[in-house]
């Protein structure tokens, strides 16, 4: 282990224990120093976020490069839409070491071992309500395209680290499909069109039932929340369906519930793909870039599912992106 990596590990351990202490204090505000028998659980420890649960309280340390003003606006937005977004326990992010920490009530997530029970209708309805809500003044752009660009950056970095020809061949269609996207979908130009309030990173890990265990579903994770093209929030399920991964009936349920709830990202009937095409391409490329990066790091070829996403990228250049209604190229 290098000295640098060792220092990172130490920082990580210190952060988790400090975050656990904060979560514990927030869970017991009247007796912060008294010992308790509650179980504390780390929920996630990634470069971009560390999340710890203590009893009914969850503390999240946001990524080191998080903009404090933007995060405060995003957390305030969640507090104002408590039926759609899980409301925070405290309105302002608190500093901890070099990170900003926010506190949330615990909610029950979708069971990763039972994705067939995924609440597609609830997810779609919540997105429709979010997209119909007014965009708070000063809220920064939704970060979807920026995250797609970051995934491509990671793929480039992984390629620089490997001379392997097979790996480079797997990456080629992904980079070609990326180059064919409009500038706004690559975060190289501002997002066009009338901006809606968007989540920015929808997947099944972004839904919890609150109050636990059987309250209504709410959206969590405001880090990418912002003003932007609302079809981006539908684009991950759309991409999964397009790539032959999500069964047609689940895609149909999701899309129908979104339309039923008056979601503005797609027309109320007819072909939804004029609006979905570019965002679904971008999410397919993003997913493929992360999949190939992961396969490169593990020194293995892409598996069947990862290959399905890469294959979709390979088919893209021959079919020009559809022009999104009301959005110039």
């Amino acid at each position: 282990m290098t000295a640098e990596a060792d220092a990172d590990t130490r920082t990580g351990t210190t952060l988790i224990s400090a975050l656990t202490a904060r979560a514990r204090a927030a869970a017991h505000p009247h007796t912060p120093a008294a010992p308790c028998a509650c179980a504390g659980t780390p929920l996630a420890d990634r470069p971009d976020a560390t999340v710890v649960r203590h009893a009914g309280t969850v503390a999240k340390a946001h990524a080191p490069d998080t903009d404090p003003t933007a995060l405060a606006l995003r957390v305030t937005t969640a507090a104002r839409l408590p039926d759609v977004l899980l409301p925070p326990l405290t309105p302002a992010p608190a500093p901890l070491h070099d990170r900003l920490v926010t506190f949330w009530p615990y909610g029950v997530p979708v069971d990763p071992d039972d994705p067939d029970a995924a609440p597609w209708e609830s997810a779609a309805t919540l997105l429709a309500l979010l997209h119909r809500a007014p965009v708070p003044a000063g809220l920064p752009p939704m970060r979807g395209p920026a995250k797609a660009a970051r995934a491509i950056g990671r793929l480039h970095a992984a390629l620089r680290a490997t001379p392997d020809a097979v790996a480079r061949a797997a990456a080629r269609p992904v980079l070609a499909a990326w180059a064919g996207l409009p500038a706004w979908a690559r975060a190289a130009a501002p997002m066009p069109g009338p901006a809606a309030l968007c989540h920015g990173d929808l997947h099944l890990g972004q839904l919890v039932r609150h109050p636990a265990p059987d309250g209504p579903w709410k959206l969590i994770d405001v880090d990418d929340l912002g003003a932007g093209v609302p079809a981006w929030d539908l684009a991950r399920p759309a991409a999964w369906y397009a790539c032959g991964l999500l069964p047609p009936d689940e895609w149909t349920r999701f899309l129908a519930a979104y339309r039923q709830a008056g979601g503005p990202a797609v027309p109320p009937d007819g072909d939804p793909w004029r609006a979905l095409d570019v965002p679904a391409r971008a999410l397919t490329v993003q997913t493929a870039a992360l999949a190939v990066t992961k396969a490169l790091a593990a020194g293995r070829p892409p598996d069947e599912v990862e290959q399905a996403v890469v294959d979709a990228c390979a088919r893209m250049p021959a079919i020009p992106p559809r022009r999104t209604p009301g959005i110039p190229d």
């Binding site: 990763p112 994705p115 997947h203 369906y241 032959g244 399905a308």
Partner: peptide, 30 residues
């Protein structure tokens, strides 16, 4: 979309879904 995988009923179909989801897709969903 035309760049998508051939779907069941359209081109003879080879979806990766079925009675049991592929483990890798289960991870992708989250």
């Amino acid at each position: 979309p035309a760049w998508g995988a051939p779907h069941g009923g359209q081109h003879g179909g080879h979806g990766h879904y079925g009675h049991h989801r592929h483990k890798s897709f289960g991870h992708m969903l989250f």
